[in-house]
Simulated assay, not measured.
Amino acid sequence: MTEGGSVVGLTFDASFAWPVYDWMGVAKAAFESTSRYLARDLGPDGIRCNLVSAGPIRTTAAKSIPGFSSMEDGWPERAPLGWDQTDPEPTARAVAALLSDWFPATTGEIVHVDGGVHAMGL
């Protein structure tokens, strides 16, 4: 990336200790911190580093998390915008937007694509 660019990763909000997420939550917290440090260190080279925190999506990776279904249960009802666990498109659109030049001054961010659950509290 000699002329700037963008790095985007996927996370699941590590600011909470989610039930059944266990070791993956700890790994995501480290990943979120790493992204902030990369934003700091790569910013002078014009490289943006951001994350997308998606709500639960039924993926191959999700199948390897014991009890994942208990985490996704009730998510659509808690989300002000609703949530479809089978539709990865909203998350993919956020990633594509962050990779594009539409966010030229955004780095070190975590964009929540979760139907609004992150803002609702318990």
Rank of each mutant, 00 (worst) to 15 (best):
G108E: 09
T59Q: 06
R36E: 05
P88K: 11
A14K: 00
L81Y: 11
A39K: 03
H118S: 15
S53W: 00
L38R: 00
G4N: 10
A54N: 14
D22P: 02
H118W: 08
A62G: 13
L38Q: 12
G4K: 05
V95M: 10
K63V: 05
H118Y: 12
K63Y: 06
G55K: 01
L81N: 04
L99R: 06
S70G: 07
G67P: 09
W23Y: 14
P88F: 07
R58H: 13
L10W: 03
V95H: 07
A96L: 15
A17Q: 09
G115R: 03
P88H: 10
A105P: 00
P90V: 05
A30F: 06
T106Y: 06
S100W: 10
G9W: 01
A27P: 06
G82M: 04
R93Q: 14
M24S: 13
A97W: 14
A97G: 10
S100N: 08
D13N: 14
L99K: 07
V26N: 03
G121Y: 04
G43N: 10
S35D: 01
G46T: 02
D84T: 01
P56D: 05
L42R: 06
E77Q: 15
T11K: 03
A62E: 10
C49S: 14
T11P: 09
W102Q: 15
H118V: 09
A97C: 10
W23M: 04
A27S: 15
E89Q: 15
M120D: 02
E77L: 07
W18Y: 13
R48E: 05
G25S: 06
S15H: 11
W83G: 01
D22F: 09
L51N: 03
L38H: 03
A27E: 03
F68I: 09
L51M: 11
A92I: 01
F31T: 05
D87A: 06
A62K: 03
Y21Q: 06
L10Q: 08
H112E: 09
G116T: 01
W83V: 02
V7W: 05
D41I: 00
E32W: 02
Q85A: 15
P90G: 11
V111R: 12
V20L: 08
S69I: 01
T34Y: 14
G4P: 09
H118A: 15
S64K: 13
V111C: 02
S69C: 00
P80A: 03
P80M: 06
S100C: 04
A96F: 12
T86Q: 14
D41A: 13
T91F: 02
H112G: 02
V95N: 10
V26L: 09
E3P: 01
K28T: 08
I47S: 07
G25H: 04
A27T: 13
A79Q: 00
L10P: 03
F12T: 03
